[in-house]
Design a protein around this nucleic acid. Sequence first.
DNA 1: CGAGTATCCTGTCCGC
DNA 2: TGCGGACAGGATACTC
Length: 284
Amino acid sequence: MPELPEVEVVRRGLADHVLDRTVAAVDVAHPRAVRRHVAGGPDFAARLAGRTITAARRRGKYLWLDLDGDEALLAHLGMSGQMLVADHGRPDEKHLRVRLRFADGGPELRFVDQRTFGGLSLHPVVGPDRLPEPVGHIARDPMDPAFDLDAAVAGIRRRRTGLKRALLDQTVVSGIGNIYADEALWRARLHGERPTEKLTRAQGRTVLAAAAEVMDAALDAGGTSFDALYVNVNGASGYFDRSLDAYGQADRPCRRCGTPIRRESFMNRSSFSCPRCQPRPRGL
DNA sequence: CGAGTATCCTGTCCGC
DNA sequence: TGCGGACAGGATACTC
């Protein structure tokens, strides 16, 4: 499940392999993969052909390739999306959704996505930051050089909800998914259902700094593990196996205090936390 | 309008 | 062995 560090690994791989290359032809193998391109698959393929890729950019979990002209090829990997740089003739992956061939005859770019939560689309880039339109409402992520920590803390405290919900809201801070939210809360020793209006500024700064630390660590681990010719979003899985303190650790002892980690139901999914280090707020 | 929830999808795992 | 159900979860359309 790609979160920000995995998406950044993919962005770097794309920067290495598709920059300054011109798209020759596009195959859309599954229409759902381009459902966010409202004009449809044939329009997507026709408009992408002949375009040259000028940059590989990212905000939060959104990834896009700037094209010549003021447009971008936007990608979201969803739950299971992968960008693969593949030599011709290599057998198609079972869940190949979109293929880009290039005019230089070099390796092609494949979008592979088992569960089709992800997708590709073309959009104008707008505003001073030259963002694709669907990214306009996404907040800066903690790895963005222009990320404003105090503004993000203020954004969280302005919400009237639980802390974990606020962390997952991509319009407040982007790039934090279920795994990193649980890890950040564990590091900050805060329960996810703590009301945001009772969160102190110091607690807010602590939990966001923790999120940034977890992301940095995952990027260090994932950024070195992918093959130069195979841009693989699963590159960071080794990090998850070894380094998670809370997420997925139900009944295993907390690394700080030894208390078994608890699993709770949250928004039709799961939250993991230490009952002792992260006590439930009173009354909840 | 803000908060919370239902929904999309498919592969894996578990119990019977 | 095979089947049914739970589970994984980002983003958004939807309701209240």
